[in-house]
C-alpha cells in the first residue's frame, strides 16, 4: 500500500521541516495530556494508596468499581462533561467549553481511575512488606500513605505512564469538549481524525507516526530517569 511509504516520507519531512503549526499541535497535546496526568496523579495516587491500606466495609466493592472505571469510554466522558460545561449545563457559567482546560478536565476523569487503581496495587504490595515496621514506628494506616507512596515511587512511575498513554492517545472526549478548534483546541488525535475525514490518509498516518514516536519518547525518558534512580536506590 503506497500510503505507508508516502506517510513515512511525509512524517520525516514534517519533523525535519519543523512546521510551526505542527509543533503548536504537538505542544498542545503534551500540555493537555501531561497536565491531566499530573493532576490525576496528585488525586489518584493518594486515593489509590488510601484504598490499599484502609480497611472498611464496602472496600472490595470500591476496588472492583475503580478497576471497572479504568475502562471508561472516552466518548461517554466527553458527553457527560459537555453536558456539565455547556452553557445550558450546571457549570456553564465557568465558560470552559471548547478550551484546553475542558480537555484537561476530561482527561483527568479518564486517567484518574487508571492511576488510582494501579497505585492501589503497587501500594498494597509494598504495604505487605512495610506494614509491621510502619506500625512499629507508630504510624496509623492512613498515616503510612505518604511513606508508602514515596517508597513506591519507582513502581508508581508505571501508573503515571499508563495514564499518560491513555491521555495522549484519546480522541473521543477531547473532540467533544474541545471542539477541535484550529489553533485553540486542536491536538494530535483530533488532527488525525480530521485529516482522515478529509481523505488525507498519508498525512493522517504521518501524524500518527509522530504521535507514536512522541509516546515512546516520553515513556523512554521517564523509564530511563526512573530506572537510573531505582538502580541508585536499589529499590
Amino acid at each position: 500500500m503506497q500510503d505507508f511509504a508516502s506517510s513515512l516520507d511525509r512524517s520525516i519531512g514534517l519533523i525535519i521541516s519543523g512546521d510551526a503549526e505542527l509543533w503548536a499541535i504537538v505542544l498542545l497535546s503534551l500540555r493537555v495530556s501531561l497536565s491531566a496526568v499530573v493532576i490525576a496523579a496528585v488525586i489518584g495516587m493518594p486515593l489509590g494508596a488510601a484504598l490499599a491500606v484502609a480497611r472498611f466495609p464496602g472496600r472490595q466493592v470500591l476496588i472492583v468499581l475503580l478497576n471497572a472505571l479504568m475502562g471508561l469510554p472516552p466518548v461517554v466522558v466527553g458527553l457527560l462533561l459537555y453536558l456539565m460545561l455547556s452553557n445550558a449545563g450546571p457549570l456553564g457559567m465557568l465558560q470552559l467549553l471548547y478550551t484546553p482546560t475542558a480537555m484537561i478536565l476530561a482527561q483527568v476523569v479518564l486517567v484518574m481511575p487508571i492511576i488510582a487503581a494501579l497505585s492501589r496495587q503497587v501500594v498494597e504490595t509494598l504495604d505487605r512488606e512495610y506494614s509491621e515496621q510502619l506500625r512499629s514506628f507508630g504510624l496509623s494506616r492512613l498515616g503510612s500513605v505518604p511513606t508508602l507512596l514515596w517508597d513506591g515511587r519507582f513502581s508508581l512511575l508505571t501508573a503515571f505512564l499508563a495514564g499518560f498513554g491513555r491521555a495522549i492517545a484519546e480522541v473521543g472526549a477531547v473532540m467533544i469538549v474541545g471542539g477541535n478548534i484550529n489553533h485553540v483546541t486542536r491536538v494530535m488525535t483530533t488532527t488525525i481524525a480530521l485529516e482522515t475525514s478529509k481523505g488525507n490518509l498519508a498525512l493522517a498516518l504521518a501524524l500518527g507516526t509522530i504521535l507514536i514516536v512522541l509516546a515512546i519518547a516520553v515513556n523512554a525518558a521517564t523509564s530511563l530517569m526512573g530506572g537510573t534512580a531505582r538502580r541508585l536506590a536499589h529499590a
Binding site: A24, L27, L30, R31, L34, S35, H183, V184
Partner: peptide, 9 residues
C-alpha cells in the same frame, strides 16, 4: 513543557 506552551498561540 507546561510553561513554554502556555504562551502558545
Amino acid at each position: 513543557v507546561l510553561g513554554t506552551t502556555s504562551s502558545a498561540p
